[in-house]
Design a protein around this nucleic acid. Structure first.
Lengths: 238, 238
DNA sequence: CGGACCTTTGAGCTGACTCAACTCTGGTGG
DNA sequence: CCACCAGAGTTGAGTCAGCTCAAAGGTCCG
């Protein structure tokens, strides 16, 4: 298992963690033949430094990306200046699915720390999906999963209080880190309070106040961007 | 073109309107061979009366549905009782994509008026997508389009005032009706103020107040659920 | 060690909510 | 044909969660 320090930097997935390095989008339960077929493909990678963008709104859509290392935010720009964060993307997660429908990216993806992605050319992926049924279904699940996740977010934005949103945000992050082999208890936020607020439909001061409240009530321990979850039970019942 | 009365009841799409009846999910630009292949399939239909459900949360996922006639809402049930509307679905639009990722439906679809859907068995669709490349891409676009639409909704819920949300809701509905060959100027809301509010993250009183305000300011003309858009320009600049 | 950026905390304000009363509409039955 | 009723919609008055504005720490990095 990773040490707390490593985990905080998203640098060391557990041994045996989910696909990432060389098999970015391999579905589970693949037949040996199909596995060989997919393993034979070399997916290129790309490094994006903190603050740099992976793609911008309106860019031609050619490929989707799997985060290997690091962390991204996706942002929609409104009326020229005002921008809203629509998601955060951790290692193992997918970026760029929004581009399929119009052949142009509908948002901008920005690295929150020095990061690396695996590039999956979309026409190659479509070919693969026509040849390998398991792969096809895997991609359909991926897309559908994104839809379900966004529906859940809409419910959050539509019904929850500021306190509930921040709690839900921490728990969601924790669960996603756990799914990728990182610690679900202690981690480092890679985003600012303002970015969290933008994502949750809150102002940065409100996010800060809620974190302070959780701290005071003994639900979490925070020091800047370092977060330790002390009472998951209470946090989920906020 | 349809008369205003017909339009109000969603009963008469224009001649030449988007696919609906016998070719529920036919992509554009299909080769004659592929068109013949897809045309040979008989998709079953199903009638759902007002207030009845097409599928419920947790139901086995077998197929997706294309609305032929009528109107649906999709609802997520939270903590047993509290429920939130996650979307409205007009003729020609798709229902059930949320079920792919877990093989179970993640929400409930309820008819807002007597309606009819076309049933597309998902394994058949996947087979078709493996055989017909154009169809495959069409389905990918469909899924991606849903993701983009939901992102836009998240931005709305995260940043807009009550007034802006209601205005955006009316304009969105208008545009979608237009896309299916109905009037974009005058139409009948099939949902209650409460359902609109649930969808927009507002209370029914607030929705009602905003509609009254638009009426007073001469942006729209409403009489119960009948809506006529008088000043689209101003409405979009609210 | 200086400066830019991020974070915390306080004080007052306001848009949307809550609660409540009243009206309108469509359907039902006497 | 009208009376009635239940569900839907409108409108008003008061409240409060989250926003705005402001000022004081913290932290990171050159």
């Amino acid at each position: 298992m990773s040490s707390a320090t490593d985990v905080g930097h998203h640098a060391a997935p557990c041994a045996g963690a989910a696909p990432c390095q060389d098999r970015p989008i391999t579905p589970p339960d693949l037949s040996p033949d199909d596995l060989a077929r997919i393993d034979s493909i070399q997916f290129p990678t790309r490094t994006i430094h903190r603050g740099e963008t992976l793609y911008r709104t309106g860019d031609d859509f050619r490929s989707i990306y799997i985060v290997r290392v690091g962390c991204f935010k996706t942002v929609i720009t409104h009326h020229d200046d005002h921008e809203q964060v629509t998601g955060f993307h951790l290692p193992g997660e997918t970026l760029g699915l929004d581009g399929i429908c119009t052949d142009r990216h509908a948002c901008e993806a920005i690295a929150l720390e020095d990061s690396s992605v695996c590039i999956v050319a979309f026409d190659l992926l479509e070919t693969l999906c026509r040849e390998v049924r398991t792969m096809q279904h895997h991609v359909h699940r991926l897309l559908s999963g994104e839809i379900v996740r966004e529906s859940a977010l809409m419910v959050m934005l539509g019904t929850m209080t500021a306190e509930q949103r921040v709690a839900a945000f921490l728990l969601d992050l924790s669960a996603r880190l756990a799914a990728r082999g990182y610690s679900s208890v202690e981690f480092q936020l890679r985003m600012t309070r303002e970015e969290i607020g933008s994502f949750l439909g809150l102002k940065l001061e409100t996010v800060s106040r809620m974190l302070s409240r959780f701290q005071k009530d003994g639900l979490i321990d925070t020091r800047g961007r370092q977060v330790r979850i002390l009472d998951r039970e209470k946090l989920s019942r906020v």
